[in-house]
Amino acid sequence: MIFFFGTRPGKTEIKPLKNVICSYCEQMQTLTLSKTNNWFHIFWLKIFKISSNNIIECSHCKRLYFEEEFTNEMRNEL
């Protein structure tokens, strides 16, 4: 019997952060959250979530914020 199993990323969810200021360029309403979950799968069916990856990008200055760089404002908005 052959089993196909492994890990792969799921769909990326994109959510605008409305009332948060970019700490680099100080612009309001320019931040967007991109959230991707990594899944364990068997036969290409998602079984359980292994990890998640959150990145915030400013559309004005193009600055990326990784999870360890999130401000309290950003964390509260999530």
Results as ranks from 00 to 15, higher is better:
I50P: 04
M28R: 08
C22Q: 00
K46F: 07
L78A: 08
V20C: 11
P16N: 13
I50L: 15
H60K: 12
M28H: 15
T30F: 04
P9S: 03
W39E: 05
C61M: 04
E13C: 12
N54E: 09
L33K: 14
K62Y: 08
H41L: 09
M1Y: 06
W44I: 08
P16L: 06
H41C: 12
L78R: 06
I56G: 08
G6V: 03
F43A: 04
I47A: 02
L64K: 12
C25M: 08
E26C: 13
T30C: 13
I2W: 12
T36C: 03
L64S: 12
I55M: 09
L78H: 06
F40K: 08
L45G: 01
S59Q: 12
N37W: 01
R75M: 08
N37H: 09
I56M: 13
G6Q: 10
I2R: 14
S51Q: 03
Y65H: 09
Q29M: 01
S34L: 11
K15Y: 01
K49H: 01
T12P: 00
C61R: 09
P9I: 11
F5G: 05
R8M: 15
K35G: 01
I56Q: 09
N37F: 04
M1W: 10
I14S: 06
N19I: 13
K11N: 14
F40P: 02
S59P: 00
V20S: 08
F66V: 12
Y24N: 15
F5Y: 06
I50W: 12
T12F: 01
G10K: 01
S23E: 15
I47Y: 04
K15R: 11
N37A: 13
S52P: 02
F5K: 15
M1G: 13
I56W: 10
G10W: 02
N54I: 01
L31H: 02
E69C: 04
F40I: 13
F70Q: 03
Y24R: 07
C25W: 11
M28C: 03
S52L: 00
C61P: 03
C22Y: 00
H41E: 05
F66S: 09
N72Y: 05
T7V: 05
T30P: 03
T7M: 15
C58Y: 02
L78K: 10
F3A: 03
I47N: 06
N19Y: 06
K35R: 14
F3N: 06
T36L: 03
K18W: 13
I21H: 09
E77W: 01
I2V: 12
F66C: 05
T12C: 09
T12L: 11
F40W: 07
N19M: 07
Q27N: 15
N37Y: 05
M28S: 14
I21L: 10
S59I: 10
E68I: 01
G6F: 11
T12Y: 06
F70C: 11
E77S: 14
E69W: 03
E67V: 05
Y24F: 07
W44P: 02
R63D: 03
L45N: 09
L33G: 05
I55L: 15
C22G: 05
L45T: 14
L64G: 00
L33I: 10
T12Q: 07
F5D: 14
F70A: 05
C22F: 04
E57W: 01
L64A: 06
F48T: 06
Q29N: 14
K15Q: 13
